[in-house]
Nucleic acid binder design. Structure first.
Lengths: 352, 352
DNA sequence: CGATTTCTTGAAAGCGCTTGCAGAACTTAG
DNA sequence: CTAAGTTCTGCAAGCGCTTTCAAGAAATCG
């Protein structure tokens, strides 16, 4: 950080001044003929102020086009009006939707989101959190955190915390869990209901908590029907298309028979579909395929993918709202509607 | 903003104190037995300091686990060490990749990105910019801005500006354009080279500057071969799967013959593929299809999509770097490698 | 060895806004 | 009309860090 360098061009102060934003609260105060405290109070509604002055101040604000400097506000108030949001991947369409919802939710209450991505790596996630904390965010939203529960509980003592995709209990901590296990069970049971008995599973990476839950949901559904679980019918992918492709190839190569496949997320399903296609297998005629997430594109795959739909939007909005509640000392109440099945054309009854 | 409310729980100050971040520069100074100015200077390298004191200070910093408060730094320096990034859509996998690259690039130099999305709406974009400006960002990166040139030039006087996907000239303004026209031409010419003559085009929304450029690229390629342009062979989509689907249906319904289709982006191509499939048309046997963007999933569609590949990563990194250069008064040099074709299985020579 | 010059440093004045405190200005009551 | 309340409102002290200024210390020079 060559602090001393760039300054040759223009001192920060000079820049500040020549920018349009140079209007300060004091200038407004002077213009309106009151003290700066009064202006501040009017701005924040922190005290009653004589109507006449209020009018004068508002006029001055309008005239000068004053906009409070949030940096100064943050420093003075000790809070930054911003909340950190760490997603695992900025490029995932799935998380993207949640981010968009969080953005709207936060902005509505005048908080700004600070997005960072953890790339599914504990270390990265930790760095993000540290960075956010150092920026003095007022709270942190963690989308499917990779960190151990203990650490999260501890973290929640430093800042209010919202967790999605897992359940952890703590004081200033709220979890928004959309029950992966139950949803995965739903998907599996649908296949079962269609008469399938040999159902393969393309799992997500072991270290993703939600991947594990989906796995257990799959097993639970099988158990519910007293269908023996066969490890051979499980291949683990990486939640990306490529992993799904490879997993499907392994499944196919294993020689194990199956009439349906449940992929732990849609992207894996995409890969699986292609692998099947390459082997001359038709979906759904030869094998039924069901996904999980309902990405926007899933309605447009060939064939359109049957999958588990969750309103990720709801999660985002819920997280934002809960965060604000937490910060402002209210008791957050969140409820998510449960997952549903988007039944499209990649599955069919076993005996037509 | 009920300023007076939530405070019932804990005053901001109290919260600040009980959080782990309460260590201030003064505490470090006291601990090290020097003045706070000295600590500051050591931290920023703004002046020479006796070796012995420097050591003491570093020790104190380590002992107290001091982390400078960026809010205070921002206020004092008049700059925020953050740059605003407005994307059009947080959920687009295409922009997502750019965002990720920007994030890494910025973070490397200790700047934080502030992501916001404009939803392809001028008004929204303007609001984002205002918000960002009010947050005193040190610069703004606009991904495919919808705003008129004039406005952008003006904006660049308020803050350094990086533009991607279009070319505008100005003082503190750099454009990172990956020449959509040229790339679109490349795609079209590939089809031409494969012997196709009747090539349909699924356009993006008229109001996206890059959509228009791709359209002209398509026309330019045609013109280059003296192939008459047929308006009937063009259907406009919305850059999403659904729009591509509908556009393809219209194309098919028009009765106009074509042996290949160029979709202005991959998502449109996905939709088009499905529409073709539903009509019993096979890609690439009956019609060749080429996309634009090379989304990660495009390698996994059925069949895998031939498409224009640009290193969006490069754009992101370039934007971040240029921004930092601009802020720190250096002359930004950016160069993007040109687009290439990812040739996969959705196209084939017309006469095999 | 005293006069300069060059380094190092601390004191103090901000950055722009919030807020506790106390006096000023009004009201209301007695 | 005065005492006791209520409301307003300004002063001033921060928030935590940067930076100017000038003084003291050290190094250089004649």
């Amino acid at each position: 950080m060559q602090a001393g360098k760039g300054r040759s061009t223009a001192s920060p102060r000079a820049r500040q001044t020549d920018s349009a934003q140079a209007v300060t609260l004091d200038m407004v105060a002077r213009e309106a003929g009151v003290s700066s405290s009064t202006v501040s109070r009017i701005l924040n509604g922190t005290a009653r102020v004589r109507e006449s002055k209020a009018r004068a101040v508002h006029a001055a604000i309008a005239k000068l086009r004053f906009q409070p400097n949030p940096v100064a506000q943050s420093l003075a108030r000790g809070k930054s009006m911003s909340v950190g949001v760490v997603t695992q991947s900025l490029e995932s369409p799935f998380y993207g939707e949640a981010l968009a919802a969080i953005e709207t939710g936060l902005l509505r209450s005048n908080y700004s989101p600070l997005f960072m991505s953890g790339h599914w790596r504990e270390a990265d996630e930790r760095r993000c959190i540290l960075h956010l904390l150092s920026r003095r965010v007022d709270g942190i939203i963690l989308l499917t955190s990779c960190l151990p529960d203990r650490e999260l509980v501890e973290l929640s003592r430093q800042a209010p915390l919202i967790l999605t995709g897992r359940r952890v209990d703590g004081e200033r901590l709220v979890s928004l869990d959309y029950d992966n296990t139950q949803s995965a069970r739903l998907a599996t049971e649908y296949l079962l209901g269609q008469g399938h008995r040999r159902i393969a599973f393309i799992a997500g990476p072991d270290d993703h908590p939600d991947a594990q839950q989906r796995y257990s949901g799959y097993k639970a559904a099988l158990a519910g029907r007293r269908i023996p679980f066969a490890a051979k019918l499980v291949a683990v992918g990486d939640y990306y298309d490529g992993g799904g492709y490879a997993a499907m190839e392994r499944l196919l190569d294993s020689g194990e028979k199956f009439t349906a496949v449940f992929a732990a997320n849609d992207q894996s399903a995409y890969g699986a579909m292609l692998a099947l296609h390459r082997r001359g297998l038709n979906v759904p005629r030869d094998v039924s395929l069901i996904g999980f997430d309902d990405l926007p594109s899933s309605a447009f795959t060939i064939p359109p993918l049957t999958t588990v739909h969750r309103s990720i939007n709801e999660v985002g909005e819920g997280a934002a709202q809960a965060m604000i509640d937490l910060i402002e000392g209210r008791d957050p109440v969140v409820k998510l509607s449960s997952a549903t099945l988007a039944i499209r054309e990649s599955t069919r009854p076993l005996h037509p």
